[in-house]
């Protein structure tokens, strides 16, 4: 073929034109300040700014110190609680309750959720029970738990267990139900039996959802434990917070709150890491 091009008409001088040309503002890459703030360490900047404002406001007398003692005083209180040996044993007790409650809730919930996802009989029998118990604020049954399990750690562990049960069971079930039907058909066509479909297709396929439920459950186990300790314990970090509020040592109260926040942060970070490490493939589909 020749390289002859199609002849084009000259544009008339007065012909109207709409131009789409380079716009330097639209294509601007993120600047240095934005990059700094969005980096790992840089994301601490807003936190530090808020703390600094709080500290300054408190020192300047702009904020009522009885309710908002300066962060420096809270840190000092934290150090004292730590060095007096009061803090660590209570952190240990609370951590143990969270862990026990979490396991107590999540293990049966996951098994039951998988069974509900696999069998419509189990689903039709269990679903109504979950539907009527789920909306009950679990903390409301704490008195009942105290009646059944007495005082001490046990009702708190059970409370944490019940509260973490629900997201785990619901997520496990919906994870199993949402497994790509085509993959099951594919496996059946190649001769897979029920067990093989469960272990090779359904469980791995449901795992991201099961794990999302477990992450929620971990957070709720913390919530349940702290709420239980507020109301029904003489030990644990939650009971410390409650007691320091009652005796009006606000700086100590803030110190224990910071410890609880740190525990929550730890749980979220660890579980998120695990999720990113093992379920990276969920970002793409078949």
């Amino acid at each position: 073929m020749s390289e002859q091009s199609v002849p084009t008409r000259e544009r008339a001088p007065d012909e109207p034109v709409v131009r789409y040309a380079v716009d330097p503002r639209a294509e601007r890459p993120p600047g240095r300040g934005f990059k700094l703030l969005s980096s790992g360490l840089g994301s601490m900047v807003p936190v530090v700014v808020v703390l600094a404002l709080w500290q300054g406001g408190s020192m300047a007398g702009l904020i009522d110190k009885t309710f908002f003692p300066a962060p420096s005083e809270c840190v000092q209180a934290l150090v004292e609680l730590f060095s007096s040996g009061e803090l660590l044993p209570n952190v240990g007790i609370t951590a143990q309750r969270i862990l026990l409650g979490f396991l107590l809730g999540v293990i049966p919930a996951t098994l039951l959720g998988i069974a509900m996802g696999r069998s419509r009989w189990v689903r039709v029998l269990i679903d109504p029970l979950i539907a009527i118990t789920y909306p009950i604020p679990v903390v409301a049954i704490l008195p009942l738990l105290l009646v059944i399990f007495g005082t001490g750690g046990r009702p708190i562990v059970v409370l944490a267990g019940i509260i973490s049960f629900f997201p785990a069971v619901v997520n496990a079930m919906s994870g199993v139900l949402q497994v790509d039907e085509r993959l099951i058909l594919m496996a059946r066509n190649l001769g897979a039996g029920r067990q093989q479909i469960l272990w090779k297709i359904v469980l791995p396929g449901a795992l991201p959802s099961i794990f999302a439920g477990i992450r929620l459950a971990a957070g709720l186990a913390l919530l349940g434990t702290i709420a239980g300790e507020f109301l029904a314990a003489s030990d644990g970090v939650g009971s410390m917070t409650w007691r320091y509020w009652q005796i009006y040592q606000i700086d100590n109260m803030y110190a224990t709150l910071a410890v609880i926040a740190a525990m929550g942060f730890f749980l979220t970070t660890v579980t998120l890491r695990v999720q990113r490490r093992f379920f990276s493939w969920t970002e793409g589909q078949s």
Partner: peptide
Amino acid sequence: AGPLTSIVWQDYALIPW
């Protein structure tokens, strides 16, 4: 040696993980 049939699927049906 294998199954009676095997299907090649329109949307591939590969196991994503």
